[in-house]
Every structure is written in structure tokens, then in C-alpha cells.
């Protein structure tokens, strides 16, 4: 199964890289979303996918055998990455919106100058 997911991540990376190499800034933003999702998956995969059990301690129990569940730290990291990804996404979209209003273009090749024309 790891192999299949790895190939899936590879596909996501390929699509993401292809998208951020576009000249249109909308596509570049889409590419960033794809890449961030793919990266989250890598971390998730690193935590292991051996078990399907939810990392909850059952009612009445004091503790849980760590071997029964996937690594929770990896899940915590991915969770934070998703939330921060939201922040980045919102900011990029707002920036993009402003940028298009100011420059009137979405072609990155025309955006080579720091000076206003």
C-alpha cells in the first residue's frame, strides 16, 4: 500500500510542479495547493499506515499500546501543516487579488520589474 500512496504522491508532485511552472498566476496558486497537500501526505505516510485504529484511549483504560496505532506525532504535524496551509492559501489569494488589480495582468513573465510602470 505504501508503494501505491508513494506513486500517488509522485503524481501529485508532478501535477503541482507542472502547475507552478505555468505563466498564469492562478495556475501557480493551484500548484501551490497541490504541492502542500502532497507534502502533508508524505509526512502522514512517514508516521506509518500499518494500523487503522483511531488514536483514542478507550473508556476505562489508563493507556494504549503505542504499537497499536500509527505514529500520532506525524498526525499532529500534518494537522498543523493543514491549518497553516489555510493561512497561506487565504493570504496568497488576497495577494493575488490585489496584484491583479494593481498590475492588470496575470502573466508572471510580465512581472519582471519591481518598479511601477
Amino acid at each position: 500500500m505504501e508503494l501505491v500512496i508513494a506513486i500517488f504522491i509522485g503524481l501529485l508532485f508532478a501535477c503541482g510542479v507542472y502547475l507552478i511552472l505555468r505563466r498564469s498566476i492562478v495556475k501557480v496558486i493551484l500548484g501551490i495547493f497541490v504541492l502542500s497537500n502532497a507534502t502533508n501526505l508524505i509526512i502522514f505516510l512517514a508516521g506509518g499506515i500499518r494500523s487503522e485504529q483511531i488514536p483514542f484511549i478507550a473508556e476505562g483504560e489508563q493507556t494504549l499500546d503505542p504499537a497499536l496505532i500509527n505514529d500520532p506525532v506525524a498526525q499532529v504535524l500534518v494537522l498543523k501543516a493543514i491549518v497553516i496551509g489555510l493561512g497561506i492559501a487565504a493570504y496568497i489569494l488576497a495577494l493575488k487579488y490585489r496584484y491583479f488589480q494593481v498590475t492588470g495582468t496575470h502573466d508572471l513573465d510580465l512581472l519582471k520589474n519591481t518598479d511601477q510602470r
Binding site: 502522514f44 487503522e52 488514536p55 500534518v78 493543514i82
Partner: peptide, 8 residues
């Protein structure tokens, strides 16, 4: 979800 990461 399939791999038990409900919060995620």
C-alpha cells in the same frame, strides 16, 4: 480517515 486519523 481510512487510516484512523480522525482529527486530520
Amino acid at each position: 480517515l481510512f487510516y484512523g486519523a480522525v482529527d486530520l
